[in-house]
Each structure stands twice: as structure tokens, then as C-alpha cells.
Design a protein around this nucleic acid. Structure first.
Length: 583
RNA sequence: CGGGAUGUAGCGCAGCUUGGUAGCGCACUUCGCUUGGGACGAAGGGGUCGCACGUUCGAAUCGUGUCAUCCCGACCA
């Protein structure tokens, strides 16, 4: 490719609306252009990168025994009603109507469709197991898209679905996919950590996310991990706590004055106690109805865990005013600092639900709010003074320093970008959708399913997050849009141009994806663009050519050397050959 | 969903207070000059100032509404 013909427009400045580095660099270097909120054009350079990521994914999936197909982007409501997700998926599902008023949606994922395909075609145990996958655009109407390609509404995803006859078969395929994923990300130049996670809207029991570890805001997930190998997303992490004082010093229950104690900190200061003897009551709104969570006051609630404990789609902390309103409806006139479970019965005409975190179960002689302004109950105990909710669950947010549930050492925390995930679905879709096969015993049974996703566009963006410097992107060779660029310093210099053309032709002839910067630009412009775009190899043909030397630079470490043109070509050709052998 | 801000040429911005018919840098076209780190000079092309309504002789500028985009918060009883 000749740079003069390459469709790319690099910008002198970063776009004003980009926040994270991958977004800034991909726009500035001319890879992507925003069309509308969370939706991007993939320009030629980006498309080359995406196709390379896709091909790595394709190769490893095929090697792992999966088969590629392609399902429609638009899906009918009926299938989603069969699985029960038309109502359950929430606002992220982009719904639309056709001219006949039939309801459809844009596919955010394809469990329903693949299950319908399977039940039509997989009738016998003899046809199983099977793993089917596709690579296509997905659409999720995110409440707040951001970070460019890292969280768009439309994005490219590889989604695979496996069908087995037994849990053992699923376990084996799950491990098979785990291994394939590890290889895929490694080939894309990314170090990933597989972490346990919540299974979210997809459903199922066991699931892991593949995280690119980062220390920037681009990593939207907190990952807790331990040297022993334990690693989990914050929405799923568990930990053991070091022993703490959970029995208060009061010998009998009594109501005491606690004026102006609107926070746990103020309450502790006033009563001269540790928060570990206080039961904290937090109000959440789950699908419009309040849920009150009880937890030891030095700990915090993990919203996804709480949501799982009560069931529902959307959860948020109650806003100012709502808490007072809930108390008022139940005949109390206090502000939020004094809320407690006792006496709160109903709201919106429905009984209020309570969830107790495991941390409060063994607490004794504790402090708790009783919905009376400027007063708390001290020396309280379950059953005698306050009813312990029947719904007891782990709804606690783990913190760094707490103890690993597997080995007991202190947990550490980092941020991660989720580039892939694997789920064990079991019969979550096959059972309700009546997707069954006939087993060896003549009985019909639902498939045991698994699903496996990789964010193709997110993986590419994560690669930029992981590989860049102050000059631009440093693409890993395996997914770079082009492997090398040849830069003649002066296009007017016949010798320089001839040598540059020779090197370029040699590279192309040997299968290297190369660009020659034949533009009549000053060399500074060419260098800036080459570094911004992130060519792994930069060969500069300049004055040194009179001595028979060119400058050879690897973008990875920005190391330069003066070598002969044939040597430069040889190094690149060897690297590409080696890359192809690894495939 | 709340809170804050911004919409003027492909990108980055000024002009708005105090209304008078749109400007700067980059990018683009042509010519000259230049060629080892985003040169310089000259001449050009490109914008119904997000949209709608209103006030006015006259609106990018004032008012109302609307749409879009970005940031922040979803932090804790």
C-alpha cells in the first residue's frame, strides 16, 4: 500500500470528547470515527485490525472443534418470550417494530436463536456434543456508552454456544474453551487473567471472565486476586474476614439519644464504639420496590450480589427523600441516619423485603436504627429485639486486604478490561424453549448448554490500552493493520526512492503487509504519522543510503539501528514468517 | 434516572457581555520554496452558526422550547 493512497486522516490534536487513551489514539490516528453515541465507523486501518483479531479467534475456535455459522442481527420477539427474556432483559434490549407492527429486537446476544437452531437440527445424542459460533455486530442500548470501542452500543463479538448431553461433557468443553481463550488473547498480545464472575443477564451458574489487567479507568471492573490463583470480579468475589469485635458492651437493650448522628462515623464518635457492633440498614430500589439490606456497618453492599439475593433486573441505591418517604408511609418521622428494619412493613402497597448479610447473623448486643429521630437502639439482639430477616445471603463487597477464601492470604485488587467470558448455562434456555434430543435410552432430554463470548472490537481497543506510548499506538505484530512502513526521507532523492521502493517490493513479495510513505511531505510528518498509527517496523531510507545504510526501528521499544537494506528486509520477513508459523 | 457543561467548516477553537449579515489554527486545492522530527510565502475552496418558534428594521449574539453530545454521580443510612 502506498501511503499517498491509504485512506487515513490523522489529526493534529486529540478529539475533545475522548477520555481514555485507546479512544483518543484510535480517533487521532484515523482508525475510527464516531457516527452517533456509542456507534463507530471502522475505517480501513481499524477494519484490518479487526479482521486480524477475528481471524485469530476463528483459527483457535476451529482448532478447538467449533463450527462457524452466522445468525441474523434482527430477532423476533416470540423467541425471546419463549426464554422469558423479552420481559427480563430490560432497557438494554433495543426493541423495534416492523411495518406490520410485529415486535423485533436487535441481537444483544444469541442464546434464543442458537437454541432454536439446535432444536431443529440436533435430534439425537449421536449428533452431540456440538459447539457453534459466529462473529458479528451486536447491539446493546447501554445506559451510558463510553470509552470509545471499550463500551459501545454497537460492537463486534464472537459468540459460541455448546450443546452437550451431560454436565461432564459441558465441563470438558468449558475447559476446552478456557484453553482456546488463553491462546487467543496471548496471540493478540494481551496478558489476561481468568476471574470468577457473576453470570448476569445471560444466566447460568459457573462463569469466568477474561480480564486484561490495567491500572487505568478504562478497566471498568474491580478484580480481587490472590497469589494462590484465586481471582474474581468484585460482583462475585468472596472473602474471609479477620476476627472483629461483633458483640457490644451493653448488658441490656435500651433506646439511647444519639443526636445529629447522620452517618456511621458520627454514630461511632458519639457512642465511642467501633462500627463492627453496628447493624447498618441500606435502602435499595429493585425494579421500583424498596429492599432493605442489613450489613455490619464497617462493610459495604455489593449491588449485584444483593440483586441476585432478591431477584430482579435493575437495582439502585435509594435517592434522598425516598428513604424518609418509606419511613413516613410506615408511620415514622425520622431522617435516613436513623432508619432500621423494625416496624417497616410495606411500601407501594407491597411488603418491604429485607436481606441480611452473613456478617450480621452472629452479632450480639448491637446498635441499630429504629426509625426515631436522634435515637438508636443499643444492646440489641436478634429475635428478642429485632427480627432477623429470613433471607440471609452474602451481599458484601469484598475489600483488598480481606482474606482469600481458598488459601487465607490477603487479597489484592486491580482493575480489569473484560475481553471475554465463558458461561455454563445448563438447561436455562433448552428447558423453557423445549430444546431436546433423544438420548440412548429413548427419552427426550434438554441440552446441557454453555456459551462463550469474546469482544472483538473491545479486544482491539484493549490492545491499544496495553500497547502505546506518548507518540502513539504500538500494535502487537499479530494484529497490526500493517507490519511495516518504509519511509524515504526525500521523495525527490532518486537513490532514496529507488532503495525504498526496492525494500517495499521485497517485503510485499515475501508476504509482509507493508506501506511505503511516498508522500511529498517533510520527514517529520512521516515519522509522526508512522508512530501514531503504530507500525511495528519502521524502515527509514535517508542520507545514510550513500553509505549503504538505512535506519531500522522497532516500534515496540523504539530502538533504532543503522543496517543494510537487505538486512532490514530480512529481519521483517523473518519475523512475519515466524508469526505465521505460530498460527 | 439525577447533576453540570457544550453545540460556530473535517479537527481544535474565538466571536455572544454591548444584535449590524462570520473569523483563527490545523486539514483541503494551486503555485513557489523546503526535505532527518508535525517548515515558510502567496492565492483559493468549504459553514442556512444543532433545530424550531419568538423579540427586532435586522439574531451566531437576546428569550422560550427542543434535539444532540460530553463529563460527573450512581458511594452509601
Amino acid at each position: 500500500m502506498r501511503m499517498s493512497k491509504l485512506f487515513v486522516q490523522t489529526l493534529r490534536e486529540f478529539p475533545s470528547d475522548a477520555e481514555v487513551i485507546s479512544h483518543k489514539l484510535l480517533v487521532r490516528a484515523g482508525f475510527i470515527r464516531k457516527l452517533t453515541m456509542g456507534v463507530y465507523n471502522y475505517l480501513p486501518l481499524m477494519w484490518r485490525v479487526l479482521k486480524k483479531v477475528e481471524n485469530i479467534v476463528r483459527e483457535e475456535m476451529d482448532r478447538a472443534g467449533a463450527q462457524e455459522l452466522l445468525m441474523p442481527f434482527v430477532q423476533p420477539k416470540e423467541l425471546w418470550e419463549e426464554s422469558g427474556r423479552w420481559g427480563a432483559y430490560g432497557a438494554e434490549l433495543m426493541r423495534l417494530q416492523d411495518r406490520h407492527g410485529r415486535e423485533m429486537c436487535l441481537g444483544p446476544t444469541h442464546e434464543e436463536i442458537i437454541t432454536s437452531i439446535a432444536r431443529d437440527g440436533l435430534k439425537s445424542y449421536k449428533q452431540l456434543p456440538v459447539n457453534l459460533y459466529q462473529i458479528q455486530s451486536k447491539f446493546r442500548d447501554e445506559r451510558r456508552p463510553r470509552f470509545g470501542l471499550l463500551r459501545g452500543r454497537e460492537f463486534i463479538m464472537k459468540d459460541a454456544y455448546s450443546f452437550d448431553t451431560t454436565q461432564e461433557g459441558l465441563d470438558k468443553e468449558y475447559k476446552n474453551m478456557w484453553n482456546a481463550y488463553t491462546k487467543i488473547f496471548k496471540r493478540c498480545g494481551l496478558e489476561t487473567k481468568a476471574v470468577q464472575s457473576d453470570s448476569g443477564a445471560i444466566g447460568g451458574s459457573v462463569s469466568h471472565e477474561f480480564m486484561v489487567i490495567t491500572d487505568t479507568d478504562a478497566g471498568e471492573n474491580d478484580v480481587f486476586y490472590c497469589d494462590c490463583g484465586y481471582a474474581a470480579n468484585s460482583n462475585h468475589a468472596i472473602s474471609n474476614l479477620t476476627p472483629a469485635k461483633i458483640v457490644g458492651d451493653w448488658t441490656k437493650a435500651e433506646i439511647v439519644d444519639t443526636p445529629e448522628t447522620h452517618s456511621i462515623e458520627e454514630l461511632c464518635d458519639f457512642l465511642k464504639i467501633e462500627p463492627t457492633v453496628i447493624v447498618k440498614s441500606l435502602v435499595y430500589i429493585v425494579d421500583k420496590d424498596p429492599v432493605i439490606a442489613l450489613i455490619r456497618a464497617d462493610k459495604n453492599v455489593e449491588e449485584t450480589k444483593l440483586l441476585n439475593a432478591v431477584g430482579g433486573q435493575e437495582i439502585r441505591i435509594a435517592a434522598a427523600g425516598e428513604i424518609e418517604d418509606i419511613m413516613a408511609v410506615n408511620g415514622f418521622n425520622a431522617d435516613k441516619g436513623f432508619i432500621g428494619p423494625k416496624g417497616l412493613k410495606e411500601y407501594n402497597g407491597k411488603p418491604i423485603r429485607f436481606v441480611a448479610d452473613k456478617t450480621v447473623v452472629d452479632m450480639k448486643n448491637f446498635v441499630i436504627g429504629i426509625n426515631i429521630k436522634d435515637k438508636h437502639l443499643v444492646g440489641g439482639n436478634w429475635e428478642t429485639d429485632v427480627e432477623l430477616p429470613s433471607n440471609i445471603a452474602d451481599i458484601r463487597l469484598v475489600e483488598a486486604g480481606e482474606l482469600c477464601p481458598e488459601c487465607g492470604k490477603a487479597l489484592k485488587v486491580t482493575r480489569g478490561i473484560e475481553v471475554g467470558n465463558i458461561f455454563q448455562l445448563g438447561t436455562k434456555y433448552s428447558a423453557p424453549m423445549n430444546a431436546v434430543y433423544t438420548d440412548i435410552d429413548g427419552k427426550t432430554k434438554p441440552y446441557i448448554m454453555g456459551c462463550y463470548g469474546i469482544g472483538i472490537s473491545r479486544t482491539a481497543a484493549a490492545a491499544v490500552e496495553a500497547h502505546h506510548d506518548e507518540f502513539g499506538i504500538k500494535w502487537p505484530l499479530s494484529i497490526a493493520p500493517y507490519h511495516a512502513i518504509v519511509i524515504p526521507v526525500s521523495t525527490k532523492d532518486e537513490l532514496q526512492m529507488n532503495v525504498a521502493e526496492d525494500i517495499y517490493k521485497t517485503l510485499v513479495k515475501h508476504g509482509v503487509e507493508a506501506v511505503i510513505d511516498d508522500r511529498d511531505e517533510r520527514v517529520g510528518v512521516k515519522f509522526k504519522d508512522a508512530e501514531l498509527i503504530g507500525f511495528p517496523y519502521i524502515i527509514t531510507v535517508g542520507k545514510g543510503i550513500t553509505e549503504g545504510l538505512v535506519e531500522f526501528k522497532t516500534r515496540e521499544n523504539n530502538e533504532k539501528s543503522e543496517i543494510k537494506p537487505e538486512e532490514a528486509a530480512e529481519i521483517v520477513i523473518t519475523a512475519i514468517t515466524k508469526l505465521q508459523l505460530c498460527e
